[in-house]
Every structure is written in C-alpha cells, then in structure tokens.
Simulated scan of single mutants.
Amino acid sequence: MIYRIKSTEPACQYELMAARDALEVIQGKWRIPIVISLTYGTKRFGEIHRDIPDISPKMLSQELKALEENRLITRTLYDRMPITVEYSLTPLGMSLQNLLVELRNWGRHFRKEIVGN
C-alpha cells in the first residue's frame, strides 16, 4: 500500500511517504530476520527455518510469499525428485544490506545503553 501524507512541506511529505513505503515492505517480526538469513546465500525453506527456529512454518511461508510479492526475494522451483525450492535475495533485496548493517549497529548501541550488555 502506498501512503498519501498531507503536509505543508513538500520535502517532508515526500520523505514521510518514502519511509512509510519502506516500513510497509519490511514491517513485522520476521521479515528482517528472513532477509538477514538470505544475505548468507541461497537457502531452502528448512535452512531458513533452522536459522530462525522460533518462527512457525506457516508464518515463514506467509512471510516468504510477502517478500516475494515485494520483489525482495526470488523463489526458484527445481523440477526434480524430490522437488526442491530455493530462496535468494533479488538485487532489490540485496540493496537492503547497508540498512541492515546500520540497524544491527543501532541495535548493539541500544542494547548497550538500555540493557547494559
């Protein structure tokens, strides 16, 4: 969903819309961990699930579909026995790398300041 925000400042309006659009795509508890898992390479469903063990298979499936719809990942089906499906980041998904680095850095800083670890 693309948001329309009313503001008296056109630059502010543009920046707010861009931020909301980005958050819409990566929102939720699981999408960023899935993308981080895939930054380590192409993986099958079970491999992603092993990286993120507390996500249910149903939720992982739903989130993978959402990430695919938003063109952050690709799903490749190999027609062999057994049928194999692999997931990988698209160039658009890979463009999140710098954001994820900054997010992890901020998370470490936050943890140190708030939690003390």
Rank of each mutant, 00 (worst) to 15 (best):
T74G: 10
E68V: 06
E15D: 14
G46A: 01
K6S: 12
Y14Q: 09
G46Q: 03
S56T: 13
E24R: 15
G46Y: 01
R80T: 14
K29M: 11
S61E: 12
L64W: 00
L60A: 02
P10H: 03
L60M: 00
E68Q: 12
V35Y: 02
Q13K: 12
E15Y: 10
A22F: 11
I32W: 02
T76P: 01
V25W: 01
V35C: 07
Q27L: 04
A66I: 11
L16M: 04
L23V: 14
Q27F: 07
L16S: 05
K6Q: 03
L38Y: 05
A66S: 12
S7A: 15
Y40W: 06
K43P: 10
Y40S: 15
S56M: 07
Y14K: 13
K29Y: 09
P57N: 06
M59I: 06
R75S: 09
K29V: 13
C12S: 06
L72P: 01
P53T: 09
G46R: 12
E47F: 13
R20M: 12
Y14I: 08
K43Q: 04
P57D: 06
I36T: 08
E69C: 11
F45V: 05
P53C: 14
P53R: 11
D79R: 10
I5Y: 03
L64A: 02
L38E: 12
L72G: 02
S7V: 10
H49A: 07
M59G: 07
Y40P: 07
G28F: 01
M59Q: 12
A19I: 14
E15S: 14
I34G: 04
I32R: 11
P10D: 00
K65G: 05
G28M: 00
I34S: 08
M17H: 12
I2N: 15
R75K: 10
E15H: 15
A66E: 06
K58W: 09
H49G: 08
Y78V: 05
V35N: 01
Q13F: 01
N70S: 05
L23H: 12
E24T: 15
I48S: 01
E9S: 09
A19Q: 12
L67F: 13
T8D: 08
I5V: 15
N70I: 01
T42A: 04
R4I: 05
K29W: 05
E68G: 08
K58N: 09
D51S: 08
